[in-house]
């Protein structure tokens, strides 16, 4: 298997190729989201705008279900934004590898979701922006098209859960985690992150466990890591929450 392809178009293509199986699952969940939003009384336009701007499945599902089960607007907004709070550290982690004008970086940030972030991660804090864009664009298209079909009444797929597609995401994350754990520090960080999340799930609102778990990476402060970037910028930025 070829692991390192470095030519320009190949990076994007590699991102698309790696994201393809996930795009199927994302599409199916898009259909499910469209159906749910429609059932909750959302119009076609507002549902599509939601998927186009937010592009985060779990947050969108949470927001619509809070609202449709009689919860307040504030509760729905808080639930959704807590679930998406992980994108602040995730965005910060890819930022050093994004170049170009501000609007381009902003746009790439929007398609940086769990799956595209994971696919573009090359270990040791390195990210391939081309894989990120290739994977992100395919997943974005799958989410939008899925939402559109769902909101138009496409119940033909059956529930994604019946197809086991909800197990596809943690399986991908696990397969990629195995490739990330090269040393003891990474193993400790992963165990810490998993343990924090497990303990906090029943105790805190959804979204908080993931954010709290991300603090596990602070054990990286204890010893200098092998540098992923050759030069050092002494004007220290406080990029992490």
């Amino acid at each position: 298997m070829k692991e390192k392809r470095r030519t320009l178009p190949a990076g994007y293509a590699e991102g698309v190729r790696r994201a393809a199986p996930l795009a199927v699952a994302v599409f199916a969940f898009g259909v499910a989201f469209g159906l749910l939003a429609r059932a909750a009384g959302f119009s076609v336009v507002v549902t599509l705008v939601f998927s186009a701007t937010t592009f985060a499945g779990s947050a969108q599902f949470a927001a619509v279900s809070v609202l449709s089960s009689g919860g307040s607007l504030v509760a729905a907004v808080v639930a959704a934004l807590l679930l998406n709070a992980r994108y602040a550290p995730i965005g910060a982690s890819v930022a050093p590898w994004l170049t170009g004008p501000w609007w381009r970086r902003l746009l790439i940030g929007q398609i940086t979701v769990d799956e595209s972030w994971v696919i573009s991660n090359e270990g040791g804090g390195r990210f391939d922006p081309r894989k990120l864009v290739g994977a992100g664009l395919l997943l974005y298209a799958a989410w939008l098209v899925g939402t559109a079909i769902g909101v138009a009444g496409g119940g033909f797929l059956g529930k994604p859960e019946d197809l086991g597609l909800d197990a596809a995401f943690p399986a991908l994350f696990l397969a990629l985690l195995v490739g990330q754990v090269h040393d003891r520090r990474a193993l400790v960080a992963a165990l810490l992150g998993g343990a924090i999340a497990l303990v906090l799930v029943p105790l805190t609102p959804a979204g908080v466990p993931i954010i709290a778990a991300s603090l596990g990476c602070l054990i990286g402060l204890r010893r200098p890591a092998p540098p992923a970037t050759p030069e050092d910028d002494p004007a220290a930025e406080d990029g992490l929450p």
Binding site: I90, S93, L192, C217
Partner: peptide, 11 residues
């Protein structure tokens, strides 16, 4: 940051 990926992935 290099540990953020394994940590968040596990979570």
């Amino acid at each position: 940051v290099s540990l953020l990926a394994p940590t968040l992935l596990a979570a």
